[in-house]
Structure formats: structure tokens, C-alpha cells
Amino acid sequence: MVLSVRDLAVTRGGLAILEGVSFDLSPGEALVLRGPNGVGKTTLLRSVAGLQPPETGTVTGAEDQIAYAAHSDGLKAMLSVTENLKFWASVFGLSDIEPALVAFDLTDLRNRMAGTLSAGQKRRLGLARLMVTGRPIWILDEPTVSLDVTSVALFADAVRMHLKGGGSALMATHIDLGLTEARVLDLTPFKAAPRTRQMDEAFL
């Protein structure tokens, strides 16, 4: 399933920050969105994931295909690793969490409470959550923040495995991801010219 984004404009707090963004993401491909902090990477990802309606432009091929992982990876500290994964698996209608545990080397942390994990382990659990959803398109917001070098390598391997399996990944980051073969799209040229907020047009 090809995810294609045509002439997307997104707003934050009503202010237009990105416009005219277009790209395609075909299976087996990874795309990294680069750009300085605040350029609108997160907002763009949220619009593509359908959490936030874009101001203009279309996102096609995203229906029920997307697994979204934000900064805060939505893990419950009071639940164990398996319970967290089992929950997200059943929410997406699946139940097999073993491959994810293996892929992210979490097998020995199986029964540890998510709250007691280190930042790197938590991030790996967050990514394992993505795998468990069985959704082909991964949307990752700053996936390698607070990860040490080995974890970044582990992350890169997991993404490559996902790509080999026919999945695709859309990532936003301003630090190295360890994914040399990924295509890079710099968002700075798409910065929206300052113009009135859509909701304010009627008043100006």
C-alpha cells in the first residue's frame, strides 16, 4: 500500500507552519523528515496519522495502515512489559507478541514493570508496541531520542526487518538514526509563509 501525501499544509495552534508538502512512501522504503526543531515535524506526522485534520492537501493510502508512536510512548508504568504489549496487540486485533519481544531483545525483561525500565528499554518497548500492531506503515516521532549507540543499532535492525517484511517507515528526527539507506526529506523549504490563521480570516 503506497502512502502518498499531496500538497499538505498543517497548522499548529491555528498558525500555518508547513505547506505544499508532497511525498510518496512505498512498501519497503523508509523516509526521514529532517529539519530544525519547531519546523513542524511532529504536527506533520500527526496530520498524516489522522490525529489532526490538515488545513489543505490530501493523505491517501493511510486508512487503517498506520501505527503511530509519539514522544511519550503511551506505556503504563504499572503494567508489565507483556501486559503492555498484550493490551496493544488485542486493541489491534492480534495476540502474538513473541516476535516483537525477540526483535527488541526484551525477552528477559518480560515480567518487569514498565515503570522500572530504563529510558532506552522503554523506547525499545515503545517500538515493540509498533511491531505488535501489525500495521504496515510505521510513523515514528524522534524514535532514537535518549538511546545509546547499541540501542540505535538495534532500532535500525528492527526497522530494516520491518522494511524487508514489506512495511514502510516515516520518521522525524534531528539526530542520527543509524539508517543510512533511508531517503531524507528536509522540511525547511516547505516552511509556510506567514499568513493569517484560517480561523481568523473572517476577522481580518
Binding site: 500527526r46 496519522a49 489522522g50 490525529l51 487503517d64 498506520i66 501505527a67 503511530y68 508512536a69 509519539a70 514522544h71 511519550s72 510512548d73 503511551g74 506505556l75 503504563k76 496493544w88 486493541v91 489491534f92 486485533g93 500492531t133
Partner: peptide, 16 residues
């Protein structure tokens, strides 16, 4: 609780 740790966003993208 779900709002703070972001799981509400994730739930919104889930098929539920």
C-alpha cells in the same frame, strides 16, 4: 492519566 502519557493519541489511531 491517558492524556498525559499519550496513550489517548495512540488509542485514537487504533481501529477502535
Amino acid at each position: 492519566l491517558d492524556w498525559e502519557d499519550g496513550s489517548l493519541d495512540l488509542l485514537a489511531t487504533a481501529p477502535l
